[in-house]
């Protein structure tokens, strides 16, 4: 019980206040106020269509790409609104990285995949690129498997390797927050275990939010768990508390598998 630090003890890295996201007339996320504590893992759980992915995508403004979507309320990064003038979507996304449900490496070499974010950031020095890429691949626990084939296409990697490559690619630009949208849902149990181990290591340096359908995964990797239902945040608390003594009946029904 005491091994897990209480989220409230940690400073807020990101925070939403009364966030509402609409697709046209339909509200996908309603009145959600949630804090992502610095260098902790927050799991977002809930049944399909409950708004957890939409919420996640709002945090780095990926929803902007969907025609007809709009957001109201506040989203803060280090206490400042992400819609304020000091940030644009491009700058925000460099600080708040994202890993998608389906691994989506570019049809380029492994090296070029990781280099992509660095190159568009203006880094062209070959030696520094190499160093940053090695560091990112090591952080994503992929270096030993690919170090001899960096020039080969990323499309030739296995699904689990591709997903870790996408994590390495996101880490290369050194974001502060990492958003993961069901990063292991398309992977086998062994590859999933590797991603989960990785999340444990990454939280030393990054603030992580992860959407997952897998209760055990949420219980294993996260410090804080937020339960979404029908676009609303039903309950948020330390992971252990959510899974053992939830305060809301709906949370209990969901985490014990009565619906979902």
């Amino acid at each position: 019980m005491t091994s897990i630090p209480h989220p409230a003890a940690s400073a807020a890295k990101m925070e939403t206040r009364r966030l509402e996201i609409r697709y046209g007339a339909k509200a996908a996320v309603k009145d959600v106020s949630l804090t992502l504590p610095d260098r902790q893992v927050t799991a977002l759980i809930g049944p399909s269509g409950c708004g957890k992915s939409t919420f996640l995508r709002a945090l780095n403004r990926m929803n902007d790409l969907i025609p007809g979507s709009s957001a109201s309320g506040e989203i803060l990064l280090d206490g400042r609104s992400i819609y304020a003038g000091h940030l644009d979507a491009v700058e925000l996304r460099r600080r708040v990285g994202m890993v998608f449900q389906k691994s989506n490496p570019f049809p380029k070499s492994i090296f070029e995949n990781v280099a992509y974010g660095l190159r568009i950031g203006g880094l062209s020095d070959r030696r520094e690129l190499g160093e940053r890429i090695e560091r990112s691949l090591r952080s994503a626990a992929l270096w030993d498997e690919v170090k001899d084939r960096l020039a080969e296409s990323a499309m030739g990697l296995s699904g689990g390797q591709q997903q870790r490559l996408c994590i390495a690619r996101a880490l290369a630009v050194e974001p502060e927050v990492l958003l993961m949208d069901e990063p292991a849902s398309a992977l086998d149990p062994i590859a999933t275990a590797k991603i989960e181990d990785l999340i444990h290591e990454l939280k030393v340096r990054y603030t992580i939010a992860i959407v997952t359908h897998n209760m055990q995964q949420a219980a294993r990797v996260s410090d804080q768990t937020a339960f979404f239902y029908m676009g609303e945040l039903v309950e948020v608390g330390p992971t252990e508390q959510i899974f053992t003594t939830p305060r809301q009946q709906r949370t209990e029904d969901y985490v014990t598998g009565k619906f979902g």
Binding site: V90, R93, G117
Partner: peptide, 17 residues
Amino acid sequence: PRSYREASLALGATRWE
């Protein structure tokens, strides 16, 4: 695929890039 565009934009690339 849309996923390539999303991956690129999520890394902080502009639409031109």
